[in-house]
């Protein structure tokens, strides 16, 4: 009886919803791209210098660090893990690398390599807390965020490090920051590094077995476990990648500033989170993905650049950036609910 009643009732409903769907769906999938185009149009009309080549390169350069950190965050988000400590990791890595140059006069490659390896300690602590002790990711990384902010500050003695500046105990320093290191953050290089990171992560997530497993774990850890996937191992890998890319971001930051500043990386957490979340709806993927994150970072970067050009004071920018993040989160979670 029921089947007979249900079958025809379902039929007229299908075309009705289908009629309104494509438009909504298109907006949902390509909304960020439309938003970027709208922003470009708006800024091009209101700020005369906006569309100049140098400014566009400037935008790309300015989003590079955000993008790289956001890509790391994206990888942690694939296993449904959130990493609040990426900002601190970046700070830590930046003070390490500058200290190696200035305090210890270590060569370029060694300094960068050591800084990356040591900064991975943050990821290891995260893994210990999240995978082993089962602390929810948000709380665990909140803790490590503070711990390593403190570690970095203690290491530098609570101050900044730059060439020629004596250490806090008065010891004079002789090391210099190599020219080649400062070059890394110059126009073609930093953008290339960003593009390589995005491309490699994209291929890793979408075209390798490991990337597939990360997504499966994020979608349903229990099913992943019962499929024979080593869930904990992959979650650890995801946090390691997030930590590594945050450290790369921190080193680029040091190169850009030419010194190490207190909490230099903390400002990157918010735009990185925004980029990753904005990006997850890109092209209808509905999950964290590398290309989307790049596009998300572009949106955030263009917004910031344009607003600065319109002489919006820097201290008010956070209002708009925060609002963009809220909108990105709302679109992500609102869709989840409907699913």
């Amino acid at each position: 009886m029921n089947d007979v009643l249900h079958e025809p009732a379902a039929q007229p409903e299908a075309p009705r919803t289908a009629a309104g769907k494509p438009v909504l769906r298109f907006l949902n999938d390509w909304g960020i791209v439309l938003a970027i185009l709208a922003l470009i149009l708006f800024f091009a009309m209101t700020a005369p210098n906006f569309l100049q080549g140098t400014n566009l390169v400037n935008i790309l350069r300015s989003i590079s660090i955000v993008t790289i950190i956001a890509i790391g965050l994206t990888v942690s988000l694939t296993v449904n893990g959130f990493d609040l400590s990426v900002g601190s990791t970046a700070t830590f890595a930046s003070s390490l690398v500058v200290s190696f140059f200035v305090w210890y006069s270590l060569p370029l490659g060694v300094s960068i390599g050591l800084a990356l390896v040591i900064a991975l300690a943050v990821a290891l602590v995260n893994i210990l807390l999240i995978v082993k002790f089962k602390i929810p990711d948000l709380f665990a990384t909140l803790a490590t965020m503070f711990i390593f902010e403190g570690v970095a500050m203690t290491y530098t003695g609570g101050g900044s490090i730059s060439a020629g500046m004596p250490r806090l105990d008065g010891t004079p320093t002789v090391g210099l920051i190599p020219e080649s290191f400062l070059k890394i953050s110059q126009a073609p290089w930093i953008i290339l590094i960003m593009l390589v990171v995005v491309a490699v992560t994209h291929v890793f997530l979408n075209h390798t077995r490991h990337g597939r497993f990360l997504y499966i774990i994020g979608g349903n850890p229990e099913a992943a476990h019962l499929t024979g996937i080593r869930v904990n191992r992959y979650r650890a890998v995801a946090y390691l990648i997030a930590g590594l890319l945050a450290a790369v971001g921190g080193i680029l930051l040091a190169s850009q500033v030419g010194s190490s500043q207190i909490n230099a990386g903390s400002g990157y957490l918010m735009p990185a989170v925004a980029a990753a979340f904005i990006g997850s709806s890109f092209a209808g993927q509905g999950k964290p993905n590398a290309l989307g994150t790049l596009v998300g970072a572009c949106l955030v970067g263009i917004l910031e650049n344009g607003l600065v050009m319109l002489s919006v004071p820097y201290y008010s920018l956070n209002i708009i950036k925060g609002a963009v993040l809220a909108i990105a989160l709302a679109s992500t979670y609102y869709r989840f609910k409907k699913n």
Partner: peptide, 13 residues
């Protein structure tokens, strides 16, 4: 639905 299949993923995956 909770443990057996990945509801949000394609059949082939």
């Amino acid at each position: 639905r909770k443990e057996g299949i990945l509801v949000a993923d394609p059949i082939e995956q």
